[in-house]
Amino acid sequence: MADSYPQEAVSRRILRSETVLVLALSLGASGVSALISFVGSLTKPGGLKEQAATLNSSYAPGRPWLDLAWQLFGIATALVPVALVAHLLIREGTGLRAIGFDRTRPGPDLGRGALVAAGIGSAGLAFYLVVRAVGFNLTVVPESLPDVWWKFPVLILSAIQNSVVEEVIVVGYLLRRLGQLGWTPMAALVASSVLRGSYHLYQGIGGFIGNMVMGVVFVLLYRRWQRVGPLVAAHALLDIGAFVGYALLAGKVGWLPTP
């Protein structure tokens, strides 16, 4: 005879398995990949700052149309876990509106996001320059795409994709599920922040620490505003600034590290 479980126990068991699977298909797997990459960097001859971590690179050098197809394919498939989260929340009877990712407040979301991006952006850049200088970080290369007509649109789309995936899953979805599983607010904050730091570990210790701190700030803001919309906007603006800014300034200003 099949085992019998109370409905609450079944629900928690299902939610726990669901959360693990969502993370295993998305940023949890990225965290493991980043850890392996970091170990490889640590065991490679030479210091961390002598190595580079490239974020947006060509998939088909010398073949721009094929390269574009791969770029768009990568962006689209990276968003599939967000579609899965939306599906799971709809089955729950809520949807993405439950975590504040909808079109009901575009103006306030963008305004708050811009303020957050302005504050974090300058501090984050200064922190990166310091930790790289002391040898705790690889040289981050935000983009190395060819100079073709679709370069900047793809960089912007990549930035938006990153922001949607990270904020919807690591903040909105994860905090909701951990709360339903009985985690304390502090434990959920630590889990979300450490996860965010983990999948940036390929950049080095600085990437891990800097993004973990950013994770703490984002969780606190989410709890205050009850919306991931402003966080998506802030993250998108930060990444657009990093990707496009690097494309325009690399090799032209002395303070910006390049490989």
Rank of each mutant, 00 (worst) to 15 (best):
S4M: 11
S4T: 10
Y5P: 07
Y5S: 11
A9N: 08
V10N: 07
S11F: 07
R12N: 12
R13D: 07
R13M: 08
I14L: 15
I14W: 13
I14M: 13
I14H: 14
R16T: 14
S17G: 14
S26P: 09
L27K: 07
G28V: 01
V32T: 03
A34S: 13
L35E: 07
L35C: 13
I36N: 12
S37A: 15
G40A: 03
T43N: 10
P45A: 09
G47K: 13
L48A: 05
K49S: 13
E50K: 07
E50H: 09
Q51I: 08
A52G: 06
A52W: 05
A53Y: 15
L55T: 15
N56K: 13
A60V: 10
P61K: 12
R63A: 15
P64L: 10
W65S: 12
D67T: 05
L72V: 04
L72K: 09
L72T: 02
F73M: 12
G74K: 04
T77L: 06
T77W: 01
A78P: 04
L79F: 02
H87S: 09
L88Y: 02
L89K: 10
I90D: 11
R91G: 06
T94C: 08
R97M: 05
R97I: 07
R97F: 08
A98S: 13
I99T: 05
F101W: 06
F101E: 01
R103G: 12
T104K: 10
P106I: 07
G107N: 06
P108C: 01
L110I: 06
G111K: 09
G113E: 01
G113D: 04
L115Y: 02
L115I: 12
A117P: 03
I120P: 04
G124K: 08
G124E: 05
L125M: 10
L125K: 09
L125H: 06
A126P: 12
A126H: 03
V130C: 09
V131A: 02
V134L: 05
F136E: 11
N137A: 11
L138N: 06
V141L: 07
V141Q: 10
V141N: 07
V141K: 08
P142T: 12
L145Y: 03
P153F: 05
V154F: 10
L155T: 03
S158C: 04
V164F: 03
E166S: 00
V168R: 00
V170T: 13
L174Y: 00
R176K: 11
R177E: 00
G179I: 03
Q180W: 09
L181V: 06
L181C: 07
G182S: 05
G182T: 06
G182C: 04
W183I: 07
A191Q: 01
A191E: 00
S192I: 00
R196G: 01
H200A: 09
H200I: 09
Y202F: 15
Q203N: 13
N211K: 10
M212S: 15
V217P: 01
V219I: 02
Y222G: 03
Y222I: 00
R223I: 03
R223V: 02
R224H: 10
R224Q: 13
W225E: 12
P230G: 09
L231K: 04
L231R: 02
H235E: 05
H235F: 02
L237T: 09
L238C: 07
D239H: 04
F243G: 08
V244G: 04
V244Q: 02
V244N: 01
G245T: 02
A247T: 06
G251P: 05
P259L: 08
